[in-house]
């Protein structure tokens, strides 16, 4: 018994020896089973995005008029659509599009928003006022309406959806990073860095930005989920991806006509969107708890 305790404490010491903020975060993250499951699912989606099309049993545009609108079977796991195309193949091929749209749009939004937020929060004054008023204006629109407006101006297509989604995810990041910057700017360690003679760029990128990174990561994860949803909605409304792209929103829109007779045409694309967005949200929640220094276990 005593020996066991000793061994346990030795192990503890060994572990505490390398207690970087990152290792601490991983330790806290592992405790949250939901988030770990969500992360595994997202990694699976990423795998599908790379290899899904190659692994699919049928080509995405392989028409088969002898078997249209068939329910799930051993040949067609998710059934077929109105042209006899295999839904399972189309859905796993569509993973790539949804993930790419979500990640690229949010990355652009996060980078722009972070830079704007840092500048506004650090320099205040007129720059800050201009940035924040623009953000307020963008915030005043519901996200989807704004995206529709932008796509209406630029024309439909998946590339323009990315632009639209990045525009409306920018102000969220700008506001978030500005808030952190305002708080950290007055912290004693930033004053200390200033007192050492650190340049503004050094203070912004070595001291303030790392302090905002946890919030940015959490917001990023959450935003990817909602961006995928928005992009699918735009495709559903016919403003995003155009047929015959196997985009999930578009699959849903096609299946809508046959919902009464062939439920699988809407059920499976809907499930794909639902599970993807849900797992990004759960992952975001998990990361938030793991990164929050105030939540001690």
């Amino acid at each position: 018994m005593i020996g066991k305790k000793k061994a346990a404490s030795a192990e503890l010491n060994e572990k505490t020896d390398i207690k970087t903020p990152i290792s601490e975060m991983i330790r806290k993250f592992k405790k949250q089973k939901n988030a770990v499951v969500a992360l595994v699912f997202i990694l699976f989606l990423v795998f599908l995005a790379f290899f899904g099309e190659a692994m699919a049993p049928f080509k995405i545009n392989e028409y088969d008029y002898s078997s249209i609108l068939q329910g799930p079977s051993s040949a067609h796991w998710f059934g077929t659509d109105e042209f006899g195309r295999d839904l399972f193949s189309r859905i796993i091929s569509g993973t790539k599009i949804s993930l790419a749209v979500g990640l690229s749009a949010v990355s652009v939004g996060a980078i722009c928003g972070t830079i704007l937020g840092l500048l506004g929060g650090y320099y205040r004054g007129i720059i800050d006022s201009i940035i924040m008023r623009i953000c307020d204006t963008l915030f005043a629109f519901p996200g989807i309406i704004l995206a529709i407006a932008i796509v209406a101006i630029l024309g439909s297509g998946i590339g323009n959806v990315v632009i639209a989604v990045s525009v409306f995810s920018t102000p969220t990041f700008a506001r978030l990073v500005r808030g952190r910057t305002l708080a950290l700017k007055n912290s004693v360690f930033v004053q200390a860095a200033k007192n050492l003679g650190a340049s503004d760029a050094r203070i912004l990128f070595r001291h303030i930005l790392p302090g905002a990174v946890p919030e940015i990561i959490v917001q990023f994860t959450m935003s990817v989920g909602s961006s995928i949803l928005t992009a699918s909605s735009l495709s559903f409304l016919g403003m995003g991806a155009q047929p015959p792209t196997p985009e999930w929103g578009l699959l849903l829109a096609n299946g809508r006509n046959y919902m009464m007779t062939s439920l699988h045409c809407t059920l499976f694309p809907g499930l794909a969107i639902f599970l993807t967005v849900l797992s990004f949200n759960i992952l975001g929640d998990g990361l938030r708890d793991a990164l929050d220094p105030k939540l001690t276990d």
Binding site: F189, Q191, N195, A198, S199, G211
Partner: peptide
């Protein structure tokens, strides 16, 4: 140079001690 009152707030929690002390040398 200055030494600050609150030793908990005056060191960046995300930097290792090495980086903290090396910073003035780098600047």
């Amino acid at each position: 140079q200055m030494v600050f009152q609150d030793p908990y707030a005056s060191l960046n929690p995300r930097m290792s001690v090495f980086d903290i002390i090396a910073e003035p040398l780098a600047i």
